[in-house]
Design a protein around this nucleic acid. Structure first.
Length: 256
DNA sequence: ATGGCTACGATCCGTAGA
């Protein structure tokens, strides 16, 4: 069973990349972020033709998340219960006994800004939500764009980034607080090469220089960690014409 | 020393992303 997450940065623009990638990578479940389109404009027919059903929480221009699944999904829930938010950043669904929470965590803009405070409040609310989800669902995956590079090895130039948004201590603590629930970063369950990232700035030929951050992750419960057999980042779509600035992260699980 | 791309929506620039 293959689970992926990909911030597509506009589903309208990236739909051809997505459908090509689905055909090549053949994932069973895909969490998407930054759809940047409302539900009415979601390309349901095209994705259905590609073999996927879709749980969608869309928004015009900004945010927007979806879970694509080859098998039917149940218990679809949008947002974080009890956390009032206009921004469509969370959708959850159960597929083949696996509870999947797709997240597009706030960017935070700059340390100390209003958006940064929102980011930290949002993470606290997410943690409380995931605690309740874990009680109900031992097989839980939280996949998405967390907008946090958890450690210095997840940053191409830690000195240049020191104290900046995405790597600040408060953000990293908020991210680690999710692990305190018993979740594991699937990528770090395995030996990995150095300097593997999931996002590269469009500017400054950052991708060619591999000047990136690893801010997209798949967090898994203890039960799923036991079943996890691989986790990697697929750079191929980032090399295409008009790419998303993020690459897909893929985790594989044995079915037992 | 500061912007460097890209996407979007409303215009032909501003906002946001990270």
């Amino acid at each position: 069973m293959k689970l992926a997450t990909w911030n597509v940065n506009s589903l309208k623009v990236r739909l051809p990349h997505l459908t090509d990638w689905l055909a090549q990578a053949r994932p069973d479940i895909v969490c998407l972020q930054e759809l940047k389109l409302e539900d009415a404009k979601f390309p349901r027919a095209e994705l259905q033709a590609a073999g996927f059903e879709c749980a969608v929480s869309g928004q015009k221009t900004y945010n927007g998340v979806a879970i694509l699944s080859a098998q039917p999904s149940t218990d679809v829930r949008m947002g974080i219960p009890g956390f009032q938010d206009e921004q469509r950043r969370v959708v959850a669904a159960t597929i083949c006994g696996l509870r999947v929470v797709c997240v597009y965590c706030p960017n935070g803009q700059a340390v100390g800004s209003e958006k940064y405070d929102y980011k930290l409040r949002w993470f606290a609310a997410l943690k409380a939500y995931l605690a309740t989800e874990l009680e109900r669902h031992p097989a839980l995956a939280v996949a998405g764009d967390f907008n946090v590079a958890p450690e210095d090895r997840d940053v191409h130039d830690p000195k240049a980034w020191e104290g900046q948004v995405h790597v600040s201590e408060a953000e990293r603590a908020a991210w680690r607080a999710l692990l305190d629930l018993g979740l594991k970063d699937a990528f770090r369950l395995f030996a990995q090469p150095e300097k593997v990232f999931s996002w590269w700035d469009y500017r400054m030929v950052a991708f060619r220089r591999n000047a990136g951050l690893r801010i997209d992750q798949i967090l898994v419960s203890a039960e799923l960690a036991r079943r996890c057999t691989a986790c990697s980042i697929d750079k191929a779509p980032r090399k295409l014409e008009r790419p998303s600035d993020h690459a897909p992260v893929v985790a594989e699980f044995s079915v037992d």
